[in-house]
Design a protein around this nucleic acid. Structure first.
Length: 207
DNA sequence: CGTTCGATGCACT
DNA sequence: GTGCATCGAACGT
């Protein structure tokens, strides 16, 4: 495995759209008690400031969104729809609430472990994950499940510790496009979703 | 193909 | 009580 360096806090202390664009091609790794899994980021969304109606900071500071107001480079992990953990990287600076949501990964390490974590019991009693490798981390709720990310990782630094974002030794240039964000009912006028064009692990496309 | 809808927990009004 | 930064099964065409 070639060397990969964790991104320093200064990487995140920049305009959020710039951080979002630069996160494409970086590697998200989680070293959990039950094993390590990692994937290359292929889809992200930016949520920027109290003026962004889709950002959790839109209504001002609360207990839940406190990490958004804190220092850049920490993880903001929250529970949504009663069953999905979603992971963000906090950006900008103290007092400027913003983050980048990680929406999809191309699996590169621990694929068997990802399959085990995604496995589900069917009516027949069979256990397993029916999809392809590209489906394992396709979508923000799916990737946290595949990597074993939960609320335990909330507010943890992304440059050290079990959950990290790293710059791979080789980072092939891929065509990136921007679109409105997915799954929100407000703020759709802002094209703040970045994704690798045509990549099979990107969400919001047919199987 | 397409669209609808239930699951499921919690922050916030 | 309402509404989610979702997912996938279950429908209808």
């Amino acid at each position: 495995m070639p060397p990969a360096r964790p991104l320093p806090p200064s990487f995140y202390a920049r305009p959020t759209l710039q951080v979002a664009a630069d996160l494409i091609g970086m590697r998200l790794r989680h070293e959990a008690p039950d094993g390590t899994a990692a994937g290359v980021i292929v889809e992200v969304e930016a949520y920027i400031g109290e003026d962004d109606p889709a950002c959790h900071a839109a209504a001002g500071p609360t207990a839940r969104n406190a990490p958004l107001y804190g220092p850049p480079g920490l993880a903001y992990v929250y529970f949504n729809y009663g069953m999905h953990w979603l992971v963000n990287a906090v950006t900008e600076s103290d007092g400027a609430p913003a983050a980048v949501l990680i929406r999809a990964l191309e699996p590169v390490e621990g694929i068997d472990l990802m399959r085990a974590r995604r496995a589900s019991r069917r009516a027949s009693g069979d256990i397993g994950f029916a999809g392809t490798d590209a489906d394992l981390c396709r979508g923000p709720g799916n990737l946290t499940r595949a990597l074993g990310i939960t609320g335990t990782e909330n507010r943890q630094p992304l440059w050290e510790g079990p959950l990290r974002i790293e710059r791979p030794a080789r980072r092939p240039s891929r065509p990136v496009a921007w679109s409105p964000r997915i799954g929100i009912r407000v703020g759709q006028d802002r094209p703040w979703r970045a994704y690798v064009v045509g990549h099979p692990a990107v969400s919001g496309r047919p199987r």
